[in-house]
Amino acid sequence: MDQILFLLFAGIAVLCGINLVLQSHPISSALSLVGVMGALALLYLQLGGEFIAAAQLIVYAGAIMVLFIFVIMLLNAGKERAVPRYLWVRWAGLPLLFAFIAAMAYIVQRILPPSGEVKFGAFTLGSAEAIGTRLFTTYLLPFEITSVLILIAIVGAIVLARKEIE
């Protein structure tokens, strides 16, 4: 059952990922990315990360991607222009990608012990309480620094996006 669910969600994620790369319209790509994020949220649930799954939905799919779609709609971004590519990119690109993935899969298979399987419900530290405790004790300093980072990002976004004063 676990394996079937994994294959289902992984299949969705990979198909949406391929769609992201192949579609020439940014809105299609953005929606494919939302699909990847949804599938990944479900995989996080399977791995016992309830809080991260919810955060993935709220922050990534619910806020960041809506912002992307908003900007795409605002700029009325059209289809990408087809550009002639170099010959070797057209012929060697896909095989190289496959070779890259195969090499990574091979290394992963060789390094990892075969017994390292993941069972649903075995991992219980992913609850909001456990994460919150860890976040506000061990990782308090990085957390505070992140808030400064966000402040900088807010100021930067406002400065960049404000109207030019002549």
Partner: peptide, 25 residues
């Protein structure tokens, strides 16, 4: 009864905006 029930609602209602935005586009 999810132990992240309220986060689930927030996440799902955040996804609902895609319906409206996509319909408009």
């Amino acid at each position: 009864d999810l132990n992240i029930g309220i986060l689930f609602i927030l996440g799902i209602s955040g996804m609902g905006v895609y319906g409206v935005a996509l319909a408009g586009w």
